[in-house]
Amino acid sequence: MSRVVEDLLRECAPRVLGALARRRGDFALAEDAVQEALLSAARHWPVDGLPDDPRAWLTRVAERRMTDLVRSEAARRRRELAVFREPPPGDVVDHDDTLVVLFLCGHPDLTPASAIALTLRAVGGLTTAEIARAFLVPEATMAQRISRAKQKLRGARFAPPGAEEWASRLRSVLHVLYLIFNEGYTSSAGGSLHRTELSGEAIRLARLLHARLPADGEVAGLLALMLLTDARRPARTRPDGSLVPLAEQDRARWDQALIVEGVGLITEAVERGAVGEYQVQASIAALHDDARRAEDTDWPQILGMYGLLERMTGNPVVSLNRAVAVAMVHGPAAGLALVDELEPRLPGHHRLDAVRAHLDEMAGDADAAVRHYRIAAARTTSTPEQRYLVDRAARLAR
């Protein structure tokens, strides 16, 4: 399937789904019908050419499939068939419900794993097989996860959240997009450091959300964070796929266009007033990207921002990142003391040992660094990270 067709399907999918769900009032059934329409388009468009109105084509096919699904069920329940009517032609395809679909997929009742899977399928246009491959699980497992998510949403009102639930629902949506991006930027398992189909999709959806909510500082902050982080991706791996840590990256390979866009977004967002956690994270990323050399990094300012972020979130991973900043400003002993305090909050987490090993190395304690690099390597499920940690230990053990 060509890139043009793939991008067009992803753009159309949530709008067609929103139109059908709004018209029929059944999100789960509409989602099944849209998926079959997408598969039909993927088969026919590359051969027959693009239709004059791709969205209308998808809507007609999905509506016919939805009718078939309802009629099949109605064959067993005639009473339901009697009340089902074919929708009249109208301007349903011209109404963009993408944001509503995105908010529905980020429903607070769903687990993060289910919300991610449903968002990628319903809004991202990925097939169940593609999502399963991305998360290294069998397709049947992912199909069950998506099915359970849709069952939880059965009967949910297909409409933008009311004013009283807007803030909590938006927070859930942003969190889902953040998790999708992180999994794509640093894969938690498998042989590849990046899964660009996930990080790219998260950026696309964040752009879509920002276009609809341009005045929301946290939406802008999340998009800026993604752009400023993804800008470093070209320098994160060597030709053999091995990991290159931030301090050793060739910064000339960073994507300057993304950096300029991300800095512009976060600067404008922060100037509006109240600052949220995504804006703080984006500001930290901007400081890293602004340094022409690793030694030019403004670690005192980064340390101050991590302190603010830690107070905002109480997240132990944020505290671990602050420990690194403390070490860069006040020395490795100060950072190691903070890492020791985090042990009960991050038991068995490979990053705790990886940071401890890095700070031991900074302190000149090669034996301790080797030991903790090896422990971290044994605990991570990411092959590139494991190779990096093992190589680091081997270099110090010589």
Rank of each mutant, 00 (worst) to 15 (best):
A129W: 06
G314I: 12
R374I: 05
T67P: 00
G307D: 05
A113G: 08
A291F: 06
R311P: 10
R22L: 10
D53E: 14
S172A: 15
S199Y: 11
V176H: 01
D97F: 15
R232G: 06
I284A: 04
M66F: 11
W166I: 05
R322L: 03
R379N: 11
G264Y: 00
I375R: 09
S2W: 05
P108H: 03
L8H: 02
E271Q: 08
R204K: 07
I116K: 15
H330M: 01
L208H: 03
A366G: 01
A376Y: 05
G217T: 00
R15I: 12
P108N: 05
R212E: 09
R77D: 15
D97R: 13
R65V: 01
V370C: 03
L177Q: 08
A33M: 01
F158H: 10
E197T: 13
V83R: 14
A132P: 02
V270I: 15
E6P: 04
R233A: 15
H358E: 15
L104N: 03
L303S: 06
A159S: 04
A122P: 11
G307L: 02
A134M: 06
A337N: 08
V34S: 01
V270Y: 12
A129K: 02
G348V: 02
D109Y: 02
S168M: 07
L193R: 06
A220E: 11
L213I: 05
I375T: 11
E341Y: 03
M226A: 07
A397Y: 00
T127Q: 13
R79M: 09
G191K: 10
E385A: 15
G314T: 13
R251P: 03
R204P: 10
V173D: 06
L243V: 12
D290K: 14
D216E: 13
P138G: 12
V83N: 12
A82K: 03
L243P: 08
R171N: 14
R233I: 12
A140E: 11
L198E: 10
G364S: 08
E6A: 14
V390S: 09
E361W: 00
D255Q: 09
L209E: 03
P46S: 12
W299M: 01
A41K: 05
Q301G: 07
D391V: 00
E31C: 14
R169V: 08
R293M: 02
T67H: 01
G304Y: 04
A37S: 07
A285Q: 14
W45D: 09
A327G: 07
L359Q: 05
W57L: 05
